[in-house]
Simulated scan of single mutants.
Amino acid sequence: MGHPSNMDRTISTVLAALGGAGRSADGEPPVVQGHGSAADGLVRVTAGLGGRIESVEIEPAAMRLPSTDLAEEVRAATNAALAELRAAIAEVSGAPDTTAVLEQLREVQRTAVPQLQGFVDTLAQVQERLASGGRA
């Protein structure tokens, strides 16, 4: 029967593989933003997680546009920022390598099942000893 710490180590490896998706090398979640611009860069929008608009910048030259045109440019820049944000989220939240995770799960199965069977067998022997009055 393998040592229980081997099973713990294998399970920890699988959990790390499953939990590590979308994290940077230092373990911190990446900063995810989307940026959009319109009116030749005179209107710029930054969108953050949750679809929140973090900033809207309008250059003074854009203020000369008719209000309906300016509103359209702000809308276009906002939609571009949100589209980039969706793409960035999809990129960083990619699933872990399923081949590696499956191999690790197979290793857990390979080591855990015999260990657990050994524990069950030992418990059955103890139960038999107790039932027979403690005689070996």
Rank of each mutant, 00 (worst) to 15 (best):
A21F: 05
R23S: 06
N6L: 09
V45E: 03
L116M: 12
G34E: 04
A90G: 15
A88G: 00
L65W: 11
I89H: 04
A95D: 13
T68A: 10
E54S: 11
R106C: 06
R64E: 15
G51L: 02
A100W: 09
S67I: 15
R23W: 04
S5H: 12
A77V: 03
P66G: 08
G19S: 09
T46P: 01
D40A: 15
I58W: 08
A76D: 07
V45M: 00
G19C: 07
R64P: 01
S24F: 00
A90K: 06
I89R: 06
R52Q: 14
R129P: 01
M7Y: 13
L85K: 01
Q109G: 12
G118A: 12
T99G: 12
V120T: 15
V32R: 03
R44K: 10
S93L: 09
L49V: 08
L82V: 04
V113P: 02
L82G: 00
A88E: 06
T122S: 12
N79G: 03
G41C: 11
V113M: 09
A87G: 04
G133N: 03
G19P: 02
N79Q: 11
L102E: 13
P66C: 01
L70Q: 11
G2D: 15
M1W: 09
L49N: 04
A47Q: 03
A131N: 15
P60F: 04
V92P: 01
S132V: 05
Q109I: 08
A112V: 02
T78M: 01
L130C: 04
A83P: 00
S132F: 02
E107L: 11
V92R: 08
S132C: 01
T99M: 07
A124G: 08
P96L: 07
E28Q: 12
A76W: 00
R44G: 02
V14R: 02
G118V: 02
V14P: 05
A17M: 15
E128Q: 14
A88M: 02
T122K: 09
A95E: 14
A25E: 10
E103D: 14
M1T: 14
S24I: 02
T68I: 13
V126M: 09
R135F: 14
P29A: 07
Q127L: 07
P60V: 03
A90L: 12
G20K: 04
A16F: 05
L65Q: 14
V113W: 06
